[in-house]
């Protein structure tokens, strides 16, 4: 079976949607030359009007996409640096997201924001290494963080076809993941549907994006010690698959969340909250996150020190299993 990388899956999803729907077009910085490789080959296939290389004017081109969406298009913006989302937070959270309600449902704003290389990229320091998916979930913007190539393809396709704004985080730590698959099985994946990445009975580990792979590696390691960890990948941060999380934790009775957000008001905090509201737990839940208010420092050891790691995850799983 052919191998598909996560990066190539994004590229394939964009190409397929451009092919399928003339309303779809891409815009962003350096997408003609495909600096991130996500848009490789698309300018030659679809031309300058559908692969629109923009000047460094993030705020204007984000609103430009909203305007184009109001006029019937399905724009897809690529942001190659996650922190640019802070610069355009107003344009997404306060403009694109609010048009539907504020106009009494007169319009829709089907814009997709793709962020390849979110989170730490190792060595890119404080202003290029954020992972602000929880911010978008907080304001109610549909937000996905796929972990595998098939999910990256399926969720990006769904995001583009969705009639609302959707932010797609493609974590730097997942872009290199490769998967053996039959390309014929690639298909849209609904928003708000998580998946059990590995079944287990002793503890549920909720993980997103690249951390799903860390959680799976940890679960393998723990299996050798007789611990059966289930890994649940929500895939969509908002709307969250609350029932899926509750179903898994309801079976295992224990919860650990591993999350690349800062701790306070982060994604892990939300998972702990919904589980506290709905489940009877055998032990207090735990989370592994970035520290409060973390700015990612440059030096490699410091960068690693503030990101959730496998050792921390192992320690926390052990602690949850010991707590009675």
């Amino acid at each position: 079976m052919p191998k598909l990388s996560y990066l190539k899956a994004l590229n394939r999803a964009l190409g397929d949607e451009l092919e399928r729907d003339p309303a779809v077009f891409l815009l962003g910085e350096d997408i003609r030359a495909a600096a991130s490789n996500v848009t490789a080959g698309l300018f030659d296939r679809f031309g300058a009007d559908r692969v629109l290389d923009t000047p460094l004017s993030e705020q204007a081109f984000t609103n430009f996409a909203t305007g184009a969406a109001l006029a019937g298009m399905r724009p897809v913006i690529e942001f190659q640096i996650p922190s640019l989302l802070f610069l355009v937070f107003e344009q997404i959270a306060n403009q694109a997201h609010k048009f539907s309600l504020m106009t009494g449902g007169q319009c829709k704003v089907p814009v997709t924001y793709v962020v390849p290389g979110s989170g730490s990229r190792t060595g890119w320091a404080g202003q290029h290494s954020d992972h602000p998916y929880a911010l978008f979930a907080h304001v109610g913007v549909k937000t996905v963080v796929p972990s595998t190539p098939a999910d990256a393809y399926g969720l990006l396709v769904t995001a583009i076809r969705d009639d609302d704004p959707v932010v797609v985080f493609a974590p730097s730590g997942a872009l290199g993941v490769r998967e053996d698959l039959d390309f014929g099985t690639l298909a849209p994946i609904p928003l708000g549907e998580g998946r059990i990445a590995r079944s287990g009975t002793d503890v549920t580990v909720v993980a997103l994006g690249h951390l799903v792979h860390d959680a799976l590696a940890v679960a393998d390691e723990l299996a050798g010690r007789g611990i059966s960890a289930e890994v649940f990948d929500p895939r969509t941060v908002y709307p969250l698959d609350v029932d899926g999380v509750v179903e898994s934790v309801g079976r295992t009775g224990r919860l650990v969340v591993v999350d690349d957000s800062n701790r306070t008001s982060g994604f892990a905090a939300e998972i702990l909250a919904v589980v506290a509201e709905r489940c009877d737990l055998a032990a207090p839940p735990r989370r592994v996150t970035r520290p409060d208010g973390a700015v990612l420092p440059f030096a490699l050891a410091l960068d690693r020190a503030v990101q959730p790691g496998r050792e921390q995850l192992v320690a926390v799983i052990n602690a949850v299993l010991e707590d009675r």
Binding site: A60, A65, G67, L70, A71
Partner: peptide, 16 residues
Amino acid sequence: AAGSIATGAAWAARSQ
């Protein structure tokens, strides 16, 4: 804010 929204809408209409 609206200047860039109008610009996008006009661009889209022309491209259609």
